[in-house]
Write a protein that binds this DNA or RNA. Structure first.
Lengths: 338, 338
DNA sequence: TCGTAACAATGAAACGATTCAAAGATTGCG
DNA sequence: CGCAATCTTTGAATCGTTTCATTGTTACGA
């Protein structure tokens, strides 16, 4: 088992200096065609592959950006990740992905790991409050951008989506299509996104005289949680139902939809209008195509990278907080009453 | 902006030799308590973080394993990835993830990238045929394990699931519950998994006198593709329907289910039994809980890592091909006829 | 033919951690 | 007190690349 060839082996094989091989690799224009050919042939013969560790060591930093998300299973984050990867690739960096799973310990592990890797910077969707862990990063001078979380601009740059506005959009749409008695499904409200979306919805309802908003707590934002809320609603009978239901995310909405349609007594949207949040792929292909609120995930991921690059390039410590506005996607589940 | 502290800075601060600092980090027992305290304090004061690039350079290899999958969006792979990460973590390695998206070019990029990173080995679910790209890896001596693909044991180790057996299981179950006229939904058959599952199903049908198998091609394995197949079936009317439908994956099955149930004329499982493949999370929470064939994804991921570690440790070139058997998961969608 | 500019190639130094032979300190025992 | 055995600490060498000041070559106009 012969160890992998180094740049020195290539230099020997091609009878040139190591610096020349390096130039062939990094500044081909500086090298004459003749030598270049010889070197390239040697590289081929020896199956030489650059050692990235040595490059990094010399360069003092990697060509890597760390990204820590709360849950890779969540389509919202999957989409942000994809966009960030593409944006990073465009400017020659790769993304290292970490999944904290809402766990502060795992988050801390990834922060340490990424620091050892000397990432150029960090994108992070932090667990809980923006804490001392992050302040430490600031002190260390690790450029950091918060994702899906607004931050004090004096401390960090951030990209986020206005969940209050999203909640308002959803409720406003239900009101605009003539529904008055509304319900919000989601919980626990200790999750910021849930709280903000509810707050926005409440704002819209308060604007409209005669409109009411009932809050139906759920245990998490899953299809099953939605189903149990839906079953509870079915038991009320047709008269007890709200006219419009806004769910804190699409999974909940799909669950509610299943419960309601399974009985074949409640019709969507004729009896009840239903709207979700996130516009996941399954929303289009639900039994009744689901209206939703789309978050500009691609823009989020791309902008996060851009802000990070800004921080890396300019040393001055001015940060920017970018807030995106979500977008209403109307489908059959909230079509006007027949 | 003061650059990050190195082990030398720590040594100065603590008035010891660099070797001592290294020992504190790697062999704490070799160092006296007094010095250890001093060094640790210095590390803390300077905010020292190990430079992984330098470690790797010295060590000659990383503590990283490369994993290239065909599609991270696919729950099957997500699950394999998770299991592999856990197994790798247990023995002190991290997993670098690459998504080829069924594209040979991207696959090649990741292979190169991972070689530059000097990964300990590679787990790969290869695009198309096991090709010269992989032979090159063998020549270079990069330990490699194929995932979800059986391979010539003289060349590679591999872990796979027996898709033929899975197809057999599904069809056998439909037959066992009294269905005779069966249909297979999936395509194109150029995808090995699809072809194997179909072949297994055919085998079961051939065993049973009087049973028939109709093949309904689909364009891909998505919910929408399933919906269009479903719509086509609905148009045939109740009498024209098969008694049991086996879909090449759960997404297809969910699409078919939606088309059939939307009309409220076809009942599942009374009129038609429906079974999918993969047992994704959505299968449980479908309108009618979906029977499926579960693949032992955790075992796949874990075993892949184990085989890789075997290859890394023992230099001898004996490979192993492990094939797992899938498992039937019966739910309401194939309950016995009323 | 000479001088000089432009171009090519050279190779030692540096990056930061780990290793290991060797030196130094400490302990216990006769 | 002297010696050996054990425990600590030292620091130079090493990994593979990139950088850059320096040297060597070539080409061209005067």
């Amino acid at each position: 088992m012969n160890r992998t060839a180094s740049i020195k082996d290539v230099a020997n094989q091609a009878s040139v200096a190591v610096g020349t091989v390096s130039n062939v690799l990094n500044y081909p224009d500086r090298v004459s065609q003749r030598t270049k050919d010889r070197v390239l042939r040697a590289i081929d013969e020896l199956g030489f592959v650059r050692n990235d560790a040595a490059r990094q060591l010399r360069a003092g930093h990697s060509r890597t950006i760390g990204l820590i998300v709360l849950d890779v299973g969540n389509p919202f984050f999957t989409s942000v990740v994809r966009a960030a990867e593409d944006a990073a690739a465009l400017q020659g960096s790769a993304v290292l992905l970490g999944d904290s799973g809402h766990d502060a310990g795992r988050e801390a592990n990834y922060i340490d790991l990424f620091q050892e890797q000397r990432v150029q910077g960090l994108l992070i969707s932090p667990v809980g409050d923006v804490s001392e862990r992050l302040d430490l990063l600031r002190e260390r001078g690790v450029p950091t951008v918060l994702v899906d979380r607004q931050a004090d601009e004096s401390k960090f740059s951030s990209v986020a989506v206005d969940d209050d506005a999203g909640g308002y959009l959803a409720a406003r749409h239900l009101l605009d299509t003539g529904r008055r008695r509304l319900a919000f499904v989601g919980g626990p409200t200790s999750i910021r996104q849930v709280a903000d979306r509810l707050q926005g919805a409440r704002r819209a309802v308060d604007e409209e005289s005669g409109a009411t908003l009932e809050v139906l707590g759920s245990e998490g934002q899953t299809v099953l949680a939605g189903r149990s809320v839906g079953n509870m609603l079915v038991e009320r009978g047709l008269d007890g139902l709200p006219e419009g239901i806004f769910c804190a995310n699409d999974l909940l909405a799909l669950g509610v939809m299943q419960s309601l349609t399974m009985t074949h007594t409640v019709r969507i949207p004729e009896d009840v209008a239903l709207i979700g949040y996130d516009d996941i792929d399954f929303a289009v292909s639900a039994v009744v195509p689901l209206s939703s609120v789309r978050q500009p995930t691609e823009a989020l991921g791309r902008t996060a990278i851009e802000l990070l690059v800004e921080e890396v390039d300019s040393q001055n410590a001015t940060h920017r907080a970018v807030v995106f506005t979500p977008e209403l996607v109307v489908r059959q589940s909230t079509a006007g009453p027949a």
